[in-house]
Every structure is written in structure tokens, then in C-alpha cells.
């Protein structure tokens, strides 16, 4: 356990852990923007929609190369399917009277059902590699190949850099999209970018946190940061810190303790930070009503 915390649990595990940590750092600010735009559970639909994409990518790759399991291909499939999932939610809302939550729940369960159908089909195939497909459900960094670990860490690092560079623009559309449009900003393209960051976070998170729980990494660090500050810049930084710390602790603990699932442990670490913040953070609801109210002016 101590070994793992000190990143000395083996080179592969260390790279995987760095990747998970970077993912946590990226997920924090992305989650802050998502919460501000009241799209907290859109990511849940996107992440569940990755499963059919993963399965399809596996099958296509199997057909093309004779070997199904290649992380970049699977993640590309996951990303495409997640984007389709988001589009499906928006299409359902735009073309019917169904409300946002209903559209999300329909896409989430329907797409995941398709993925499960695909998984049960793949499992009947006489090929190798299909057994690992369901590791994307709750994530597992242990035993990751070095090339894959590098890929995840690399993409997560790029994600962090993009968020840092585009922070000003993201803040703009999160706060006041109409003003931004009036001021000549390409709001639609920025919106697309924000959704793209969300999808990228979801896809990168598949390996470490898993598709069932990745939404937690977007929500919990952001919510925890909001307990501490109202300033968006600090909130994003804090969320990045909370996300990074919980991802690191969770990944390290699961690498050190046999059978401890990585994704669930990361989520529990993030929840612990929230639970500690709730009673002590300045912006939690005050326990007592203020003693004197200011009269209106």
C-alpha cells in the first residue's frame, strides 16, 4: 500500500496512476462548467452510451485485423458512441415533449442495453480478448499495458492543457452565453468544444473509473469545490485539485490492495473529500439562522 502511494509499485502501475490522476485533474474543472450549465447528468447518458461503441469497435477491429482488443480503437469507438448519445438526448428533447431527465434516462438505459446485447454476443465468439471488455464498466488500472497507460496519461495531459488554455472562453459561455454571443464570440463552437471536453473526459475515464461511475468524477470534485469558493477560477482550480487527489488516492489504494476496484475506490475518495468539506466549508448552509436580518434598503 505504502509502495503504491510512493509510485514504486512497478513502472506500468505508476504510469497508469499518473494517468488516472491527470484524468481527475481534468474532470474537476470540466465538471464545474457542466454543473454551471446544469448538465450534471448528461455525462451519465454519454458514459453509458460508450458501451455499444466499445463493442462495435472491438468487432470492427476484429474483422479488420483479426485482433479485437486495441485500446486506441476501443476508445475511439467509445468516443463516437458517447457523442451519438449526447446527440440522441438533444434530438429527443427537441423533437418531442419529453423532458431532459426523461431523455437522459431513455438514452442511458437503451444505449447501455444495446451494449450489453453486444457484449453477450461477443462473448460467444471463439476469439481471445473479449473477456476484458467489461473492465470498462467500473475501470481497472491494474495490469494495464505500458503503451495503453502512456496513451491514457498523454490524452489526460492534453485535456488538462486545453482546459487551462481555453479557461477564459469556457467561463464566458458558462456564465452568460447570450452576452458572449452578443460580444461576437463563436458561442456554438465553444459550446461544441465544452461538450467535446466532456466527452473526452468520459472516454479517458473509462479505463480508470469506468463508465458506470465516471459521472461521479465530474460531479463530486466540482460540488466540493463549490462549498469552498464562489469565484469560478478558484472553483476550477480546487475542483482540479480535489479530482486529482481523489483519483490518485483511489488508484494507489486499489493498486496496493488486492481486489479493490479502482473506479469505485476513486469515487469513494472523492466522496470522502466532500463529506469532510461539508461541515467545515464556508459556503455550506449555515447551521444556525443569522441572528439579525438586514432590513431591505
Amino acid at each position: 500500500m505504502l509502495d503504491a502511494l510512493l509510485l514504486s509499485a512497478g513502472y506500468n502501475a505508476a504510469v497508469a496512476m499518473i494517468g488516472a490522476t491527470l484524468l481527475g485533474v481534468a474532470a474537476g474543472p470540466v465538471g464545474v462548467f457542466m454543473l454551471l450549465r446544469r448538465r450534471a447528468l448528461l455525462a451519465d447518458a454519454a458514459s453509458h452510451a460508450t458501451l455499444p461503441g466499445i463493442v462495435l469497435a472491438f468487432l470492427v477491429n476484429l474483422w479488420l485485423t483479426g485482433e479485437g482488443r486495441s485500446l486506441p480503437v476501443l476508445l475511439a469507438g467509445a468516443g463516437a458512441a458517447a457523442a451519438l448519445g449526447v446527440l440522441a438526448v438533444q434530438a429527443l428533447q427537441a423533437n418531442s415533449r419529453l423532458s431532459g431527465p426523461t431523455a437522459i434516462a431513455v438514452v442511458l438505459s437503451g444505449a447501455f442495453g444495446l451494449g450489453v446485447v453486444g457484449l453477450s454476443y461477443v462473448q460467444t465468439l471463439p476469439v481471445a480478448g473479449q473477456a476484458g471488455l467489461d473492465q470498462f464498466l467500473v475501470g481497472q488500472t491494474a495490469g494495464m499495458r505500458l503503451a495503453d497507460a502512456y496513451l491514457i496519461a498523454g490524452v489526460a495531459a492534453v485535456l488538462v492543457v486545453v482546459i487551462a488554455l481555453l479557461f477564459k472562453e469556457l467561463r464566458l459561455i458558462a456564465f452568460d452565453p447570450e452576452f458572449a454571443a452578443a460580444a461576437g464570440w463563436p458561442v456554438q463552437r465553444l459550446d461544441l468544444l465544452a461538450n467535446g471536453l466532456l466527452l473526452a473526459t468520459v472516454v479517458v475515464g473509462l479505463t480508470s473509473v469506468g463508465l458506470v461511475l465516471i459521472v461521479a468524477m465530474l460531479i463530486i470534485p466540482a460540488v466540493t469545490a463549490r462549498l469552498w469558493t464562489q469565484k469560478l477560477g478558484r472553483m476550477a482550480l480546487l475542483a482540479a485539485a480535489f479530482g486529482g487527489v481523489s483519483a490518485y488516492l483511489g488508484a494507489a489504494a486499489s493498486a496496493g490492495i488486492h481486489h479493490l476496484p479502482t473506479g469505485a475506490t476513486i469515487v469513494l475518495a472523492a466522496a470522502a473529500l466532500f463529506a469532510v468539506s461539508l461541515p467545515i466549508a464556508p459556503l455550506s448552509r449555515p447551521r444556525r439562522a443569522p441572528t439579525a436580518l438586514e432590513p431591505p434598503v
Binding site: S109, G110, G115
Partner: peptide, 15 residues
């Protein structure tokens, strides 16, 4: 199709 029962039902629901 010899696929997962509940997965198929969920997929049919979404479709």
C-alpha cells in the same frame, strides 16, 4: 439472438 435478456429488453425500450 441468444443475447442477454435484460440488455435486449432495455435496448428494445430505447429503440
Amino acid at each position: 439472438l441468444e443475447t442477454s435478456g435484460s440488455g435486449t429488453i432495455a435496448a428494445v425500450g430505447g429503440l
